[in-house]
Structures are given as structure tokens and as C-alpha cells.
């Protein structure tokens, strides 16, 4: 009987000390960082892939702290330098560009593809019925 009580007490202690408070804190979503130079890696017009049909290779958009510049423009939401901002720095759904008195907003996605962060913007540079979707990738 004494042996049984001893084993039971040991198991009880083991169970008691093995309990640890669960860490339920949600990891903080990082602020979406787009500073740097981005190039077009995919371009769709009304769902038609134009990536290899039109020369997008020289286009660059360079984001810095609240500002952007564009090199070798192609039909895009903006073609002149200016300022930019997300509607939400952590969970952005839209990006706004302002150049002089003009402004334009694009819906964005921010997927990671193959371990690389992409920025997908959609807009209409000409007729509103023509929807373009560019996938931008940051240059190293």
C-alpha cells in the first residue's frame, strides 16, 4: 500500500509540474515594407497575358519613404513621380498615388510567391473597361 501511495504521489507531482501556461499571444503582423526598386514580372490586360508581348523590361518604380519615382514608363496607374501611401500599413488593400494635384488608387495584393514578396496592382490607364493587372517584384 505504501508503495502504491508513493508511486501515485510521484505521478501527481509529475503531472502538476508538467503543466505550463500556454502562450496565446498572436504574433504581430509586420508592416508591409515596399521601399526599393520594383519591376514588372507579369502583365495582364483584361485577362490576356501581355508579359512577353510588350516590352516592360525597362520599367521601374522606386518607392522610398512616402515618395516614388518611375523610370521608363509604360501604361500604369501613374506616370509621374509623387507620393504614395497604403490605406492600412499592416493590412493594405489599396495603394494611393499622388502626383501634383492628381491622385489615383489601386487595389493591391501582397502575396509571397516562391519565397519572394510580390505586389499585384490593378488599374485602368485608358478606358475604364480595360483592366490591367501588373505583378511587381522587388529587385535585389
Amino acid at each position: 500500500m505504501k508503495k502504491f501511495i508513493g508511486i501515485a504521489s510521484f505521478l501527481l507531482l509529475l503531472v502538476g509540474f508538467s503543466c505550463k501556461k500556454e502562450n496565446t499571444a498572436t504574433p504581430a503582423e509586420p508592416v508591409k515594407e515596399i521601399t526599393g526598386s520594383w519591376r514588372i514580372i507579369k502583365a495582364l490586360r483584361n485577362g490576356t497575358d501581355l508579359t512577353t508581348r510588350f516590352d516592360f523590361s525597362a520599367f521601374r518604380i522606386k518607392f522610398s519613404d512616402g515618395n516614388y519615382t518611375i523610370e521608363n514608363p509604360v501604361p500604369f496607374i501613374v506616370n509621374k513621380p509623387g507620393t504614395w501611401k497604403f490605406d492600412d500599413p499592416v493590412y493594405p488593400f489599396n495603394i494611393s498615388f499622388r502626383t501634383g494635384s492628381d491622385s489615383a488608387t489601386s487595389a493591391i495584393q501582397y502575396p509571397v510567391v516562391g519565397g519572394v514578396r510580390n505586389l499585384v496592382v490593378s488599374f485602368s490607364p485608358g478606358c475604364q473597361s480595360n483592366i490591367y493587372e501588373y505583378t511587381l517584384q522587388k529587385e535585389n
Binding site: R45, V74, P75, G126, C127, S129, N130
Partner: peptide, 12 residues
């Protein structure tokens, strides 16, 4: 294409 376009579209 697209049949309705502006000069700032990419036109095929």
C-alpha cells in the same frame, strides 16, 4: 483589341 481603347491603353 481592345475594341474600345484610349491612347494610354496597350493596343493590339
Amino acid at each position: 483589341e481592345p475594341r474600345t481603347s484610349q491612347d494610354n491603353d496597350i493596343v493590339t
